[in-house]
Design a protein around this nucleic acid. Structure first.
Length: 563
RNA sequence: UGGGGAGUCGUCUAAUGGUAGGACAGCGGACUCUGGAUCCGUAUGUGGGGGUUCAAAUCCUCCCUCCCCAGCCA
């Protein structure tokens, strides 16, 4: 488990309950669990739950958190998702140690509990069809009707249940239901289904079973079997808690776990449900589950986010019981905050235009040096940056007719080239269409290193790369996947239409030669531009590929937008 | 409409009868070889009406709004 996090700030309501339980001596140790279903990839909402469950376990002496795959539906679950989920949890910095579990390992125990329920007259085999069961359930305002099979004898139920297991019946022929109350105001308590027949092989148990338990039966008993003390889930399971307790109380459960619910994470400008994520992936709207624009852990990782940033984000958003939507800017702040002190600075020109230094001879090359961590005296480190007559600068750093507060290059204006010299624009060269293709300058050799001996100051500093030394790199400029804060706003129209057409722009950038030595996964700040990572799949030293993790805050952008 | 939940700055979240605080976003300024970072300052909030109390975000009451539940998904 990670230890470098600052002490978790919040004493949220979950931690308060646990603190009380610890103080009262209710439990010997705190045991939580993170219970994903292996039918898809984890997303940042799961990260919140992971940080909560593993965090709580870490904060309490002797505490532990289990990783349990809630795999009782053979139709959708796959081993590849198990592996992906394990990788993601580890990457986030958490360790379940010996405590890796599968609900499917409990099938035999669970079956035994079901038998006990039947023996106690608390469950029955129902032969109603799916449609009939639905009709008998009633509605939120109309009580349900008892199943005609509700009063079968214990022995008949036992016999039928055994034959269900033995495979004597086709899918849907019978189900096992709890005998509770068809008139309960809580729909979850209207004789809920406990087992269904599915003649489908399970990714772990193979053909051993054709009878599979349902979530409400599996979850509480898995918790009890593992000695979970605090079973933390999301708000939509609030109505299930009554059933959770009912089952625990009506079987000889080995322990007495309690369920607590918190609000799941919502983020604006994205979607979070597995179904919608699946639609984006399968519809080809993104390149895969690890597309850097997706809020999946795999996507966020490939985008270049760090686990520290995600954990800090998780601390910052807190844990509460009211539905909420967190602003994407908080996530962006978390990664900038982390990377700012960690990654080296380099220069890269994303949208190049040539700058020619008229008073520097053709072929002359100056070997300059630039610090890798200009703001951190404890991290020395320099790299060579060659300087020559022709440079690339950012197209947006020159304007022929600049507005008032534009501090960059313009005819007659002097700026500093980062770690090099002052240059003054004396002329421009245009093409047939009248567009500027070259910016002509003179440089002041006295300003080597970036300061003028005569005390002269400049307002702007711009980055640059020497033309003959520049390395081409593919740069993927990622932006928000959706162009509106709430992509699901209009349920009818769907969320796909709200996709941001500019969520990915690929450019060929000219980067400083030191970047030729970058390895996959290396992160940098491209000065004045943003944070970037060498792509974990596509980057190669012969063909560099960088993903933009997040742009730098841009106060000029705000000023220029107003003008 | 039955039941279960939730309403605090723009956003997220504290305050558990006693000065409504923090973070992000915003705005203003300082500083700066990144219009970055950093630092300083600043505006904005208890859904509404009654009530209890010396004192209410907090307790009572009525109302309003939003979310969840009618899968053989989890």
């Amino acid at each position: 488990m990670s230890t470098e996090d600052p002490k978790t700030a919040g004493t949220d309501f979950i931690r308060q309950i646990i603190a009380q339980d610890v103080a009262s001596g209710k439990y010997e140790r705190i045991v939580t669990r993170f219970p994903p279903e292996p039918n898809g990839y984890l997303h940042i909402g799961h990260a919140k739950s992971i940080c909560l469950n593993f965090g709580v376990a870490r904060e309490n002496p002797g505490g532990r958190c289990h990783l349990r795959f809630d795999d009782s539906n053979p139709e959708t679950e796959e081993i590849r998702f198990v592996e992906a989920i394990k990788k993601d949890v580890k990457w986030l910095g958490f360790d379940w140690g010996e405590h890796l579990y599968f609900a499917s390992d409990y099938f035999e125990d669970l079956y035994g509990f079901a038998v006990r329920l039947i023996q106690g007259g608390k469950a029955y085999v129902c032969g109603l069809s799916e449609e009939e069961i639905r009709r008998h359930r009633g509605t939120v305002t109309v009580p349900g009707l008892n199943s005609p099979y509700r009063d079968r004898s214990v022995s008949e139920n036992l016999d039928l249940f055994a034959r269900m297991r033995a495979g004597e019946f086709p899918d849907g022929k019978h189900v096992l239901r709890a005998k509770i109350d068809m008139a309960s105001p809580n729909m979850k308590m209207r004789d809920p289904l406990l087992y269904r027949i599915r003649h489908i092989p399970h990714y772990r148990t193979g053909d051993k079973w054709c009878l599979y338990p349902m979530y409400d039966f599996v979850h509480c008993l898995s918790d009890a079997l593992e000695g979970i003390t605090h079973s933390i889930c999301t708000l939509e399971f609030e109505n299930n808690r009554e059933l959770y307790d009912w089952i625990i109380e009506n079987v000889p459960a080995p322990s007495r776990p309690r369920q607590y619910e918190f609000a799941r994470l919502n983020l604006n400008y994205t979607v979070m449900s597995k179904r919608k994520l699946m639609e984006l992936v399968e519809g080809g709207h993104v390149t895969g589950w690890d597309d850097p624009r997706l809020p999946t852990i795999a996507g966020i990782r490939r985008r270049g986010y760090t686990p520290e940033a995600i954990r800090n984000f998780s601390d910052r958003i807190g844990v509460a019981r009211s539905n909420s939507v967190v602003d994407a800017s908080l996530l962006e702040h978390s990664i900038r905050d982390d990377l700012n002190t960690k990654v080296p600075r380099v220069m890269a020109v994303l949208d190049p235009i040539r700058l020619v230094i008229l008073n520097l001879p053709v072929g002359q090359i100056l070997e300059l040096e630039a610090p890798n961590f200009p703001d951190d005296p404890s991290k020395m480190g320099f790299r060579k940056i060659p300087f020559s007559r022709e440079l690339f600068i950012e197209r947006s750093d020159f304007m022929e007719d600049p507005p008032k507060k534009f501090f960059r290059l313009a005819p007659g204006k002097e700026v500093r080239l980062r770690w090099a010299f002052f240059v003054t624009c004396v002329d421009v060269k245009k093409d047939a269409e009248g567009d500027v293709v070259e910016v002509h300058c003179t440089y002041d050799p006295e300003t080597l290193g970036g300061d003028a001996p005569d005390g002269r100051r400049v307002k702007g500093t711009i980055h640059w790369v020497s033309v003959p030394h520049a390395v081409d790199a593919q740069v993927r400029l990622y932006d928000r996947l959706f162009s509106v804060p709430d992509p699901e706003e209009d349920k009818e129209a769907g969320f796909i239409r709200n996709l941001n057409p500019d969520s990915l722009k690929i450019v060929t950038a000219r980067v400083e030669p030191s970047l030729a030595g970058a390895s996959r996964g290396d992160r940098f700040q491209f000065e004045r531009t943003g944070y970037f990572i060498a792509d974990e799949k596509d980057h190669a030293s012969e063909k560099p590929v960088f993903n933009r993790i997040v742009p730098l805050r841009d106060s000029w952008g705000k000023i220029s937008a107003k003008v």
